[in-house]
C-alpha cells in the first residue's frame, strides 16, 4: 500500500465517520463503528479461508462463538481481558483446525457441508454443556477491562475495535505477501497444480482455517463485551451466512473487502432505519421494510460490483 493510498483510506474513513456522526449522533455512530470493525475482524477470517485459500466455509460463526464463550468464561473467572483474548483466539484457532480436518478427504461443496456440520455441532455443544455455558439461557458478559479501566463508552469501544482491526489487517497483509499467502492462492487456483509445485495443500488449508479461526475468535471476544450477553443461537447458521455475505459484498479476495462488507452489513440497515423515519405514516410502519430495502441494496451491490466493493468491476 503506498503512502498516498494509505492517507486516502484514513481520510475517507474519517470523513465517513464524521458524516455518520452528523447523521446519527456521536454515540450511535461510534457504536456502529465498533460493530463494523468487529464484524470486519470476523469477516477477515472468511477472507482468509474463502478469498485466499478458496475453501467454502459455511460455519465461521461457530468460531466467533468459540471466541466469545472462551472470553466470557475466562473473564467471569477473573482472568484479565488481555490474557483472555489470546486464549479466545487460540480456542477458535483450534476449532478452525478441527473444522479443516475433513479437507484431507473432501473438497468443494462436500467440504463446505462438513463446515456446516461443524457449526451445528458447536452450537449444540454450547446448548448442552449447560453447567459451563448455562446452555440456552445465555451468559452475561461484563465490560472489557484494559489497564484497570472499563471499556464501556462508545468512543473507547470504537477505539479498541478499530485498533484490533488495523492490527489484524497489517498482520494479514504481511501473511498474504508471504510464502504462505502465495501457497493459499495457489491452492485456491488449482490444488493439483499447487501440489505438483511442492505446496502441501492440506497444510495450507489447515493454516488458513487456523488463521481465520484466530481472527474470528478475537472478533468473538470483543463482540461478547460489546453486546454484553451471549447465547448459542447468536452464533447459528444465520450469522455464518451473514459473514459469508459480508466477505462477498466487500470482496472476498481483498483485505479491504472485510471492512467494506461489514460497513454494508452493519451500517446500511441503520441508514435505512433513519431514512424510514422520514417516510409518511403507514409506509414508515410497514413491517420488515428495512429487510426488503436491505435485500435490494445487496442485490444491487452484487450486480454492479460482482467482485465486491473492494474488488473493482
Amino acid at each position: 500500500m503506498t503512502r498516498t493510498v494509505r492517507w486516502r483510506s484514513v481520510l475517507s474513513s474519517a470523513a465517513l465517520l464524521g458524516l455518520a456522526i452528523l447523521a446519527f449522533g456521536a454515540d450511535h455512530a461510534l457504536s456502529q463503528a465498533t460493530l463494523v470493525a468487529t464484524y470486519a475482524l470476523a469477516g477477515l477470517g472468511v477472507v482468509v479461508v474463502v478469498g485466499q485459500a478458496g475453501q467454502i466455509a459455511l460455519g465461521q460463526a461457530a468460531l466467533v462463538g468459540l471466541g466469545a464463550y472462551t472470553e466470557a468464561l475466562l473473564v467471569s473467572a477473573s482472568v484479565p481481558s488481555l490474557l483472555a483474548i489470546p486464549v479466545a483466539a487460540a480456542t477458535a484457532a483450534a476449532g478452525g483446525a478441527l473444522a479443516s480436518l475433513p479437507a484431507r478427504r473432501l473438497g468443494g461443496l462436500y467440504f463446505g457441508m462438513s463446515t456446516l456440520a461443524f457449526a451445528l455441532i458447536v452450537e449444540e455443544a454450547l446448548v448442552r454443556w449447560e453447567p459451563v455455558t448455562r446452555g440456552a439461557a445465555g451468559l452475561a458478559v461484563p465490560a472489557l477491562q484494559l489497564a484497570g479501566q472499563a471499556v464501556d463508552a462508545p468512543a473507547s469501544q470504537a477505539l479498541v475495535s478499530v485498533a484490533a482491526l488495523i492490527g489484524a489487517m497489517l498482520l494479514c497483509a504481511r501473511l498474504f505477501d508471504s510464502r504462505l499467502g502465495r501457497a493459499w492462492r495457489a491452492v485456491r487456483e488449482d490444488e493439483v497444480a499447487a501440489d505438483a509445485c511442492g505446496i502441501d495443500p492440506v497444510r495450507a488449508k489447515l493454516l488458513a482455517f487456523v488463521v481465520g479461526g484466530a481472527l474470528s475468535g478475537v472478533a468473538g471476544a470483543l463482540y461478547a463485551h460489546w453486546i454484553g450477553f451471549i447465547s448459542p443461537e447468536q452464533f447459528g447458521l444465520m450469522f455464518s451466512f451473514e459473514l459469508l455475505m459480508l466477505a462477498f459484498i466487500g470482496g472476498a479476495q481483498r483485505l479491504a473487502g472485510a471492512a467494506w462488507g461489514a460497513l454494508v452489513i452493519v451500517a446500511i440497515p441503520q441508514a435505512i432505519s433513519v431514512l424510514r423515519d422520514a417516510l409518511p405514516g403507514e409506509l414508515a410502519r410497514s413491517a420488515g421494510l428495512e429487510t426488503v430495502v436491505f435485500g435490494a441494496v445487496i442485490v444491487a451491490v452484487v450486480l454492479l460490483r460482482p467482485r465486491g466493493l473492494a474488488g473493482g468491476r
Binding site: 446519527f24 449522533g25 454515540d27 450511535h28 456502529q32 453486546i227 447468536q234 432505519s273 428495512e290 429487510t291
Partner: peptide, 21 residues
Amino acid sequence: VEDSGYDPKRAVLAARKLVQR
C-alpha cells in the same frame, strides 16, 4: 419503532439511535 429482527447487534444500535437521535 425499531425492528431488531431478533438480532442483538441491531438491538444495540437501535437502542443507541433511540437514545441519542
